[in-house]
Amino acid sequence: MLSAVLALSLLAGFFGLVLGYSAQRFRVEADPVVDQVDALLPQTQCGQCGFAGCRPYAEAIASGEADINQCPPGGEATIVALADLLGRDPKPLSEEHGEEKPKMVAVIRENECIGCTKCIQACPVDAILGAAKQMHTVIADECTGCELCLPPCPVDCIDMVVVETGLSEWRWPLPHSKDDFLRGEQATTDEAA
C-alpha cells in the first residue's frame, strides 16, 4: 500500500517536472490559431470586416470577438474553410459587411490624376506608384481590389474594373454546362458546308 502510493507520487512528481520544463522550454509565443486563420483570409486588407486588416480580424476570430462570416472578398469559400478549421457550422455572409463581388482591380484615369498622393497613403499593399504632382498609376498585379483608394481621391479618378478571365485563368466547369458547336445548330453548319 505505502509503496504503491510512493511509486505513484514519485511518478506524478517526475511527470510534473517534465511537463513543467517542456512548457517553459518549448513555449510558443504567437497563437497558432491566429496564423491559421490569417492564412485562409484573402489578404485584401480592405477592412470591410470592421477590423484594420486581415490579421486583426484573424485575431478577433481566434479570440471569439468576431464571427467567421464578415469577409466579403473571401466570400463563401473562405467561410467554409474557416468553419472547417474552427469546427463550426458555416453560415451565410453577413449582409452588413457587404456582398461578394467578382475580382476587381483599381485603375487610375491617368489624365485626370492631379498627383495628390492621397491614394498612395491609403493603399495597404503599396500597389500605387507616383509622387507629389506626378501622375500616379496602379500596379495591377499587386492590387488586391480593396477599394480603400477610392474615398480619399479628391477628383474621383479611380475606377474599379472587373478582372477579365484570360486563357490562363479559365477553369473547366463541372460537366453539363457547355454548348457544343454543330449540335442544335445544324442550319448554320449546312450553310458552311
Binding site: P42, Q43, V125, A127, E142, E169, R171
Partner: peptide, 29 residues
C-alpha cells in the same frame, strides 16, 4: 471533365494563395 475541373480549380486556388501571400508580405512590409 471532372478531373480537368478539379485540376484547374486547384491551380486557380494555388494562384490565389500565392497572390494573397504576396499581399500579406507587402502589407506587413
Amino acid at each position: 471533365q471532372y478531373y480537368r475541373y478539379a485540376k484547374t480549380e486547384i491551380w486557380a486556388m494555388e494562384k490565389e494563395r500565392r497572390k494573397s501571400d504576396l499581399a500579406r508580405r507587402r502589407h506587413e512590409a
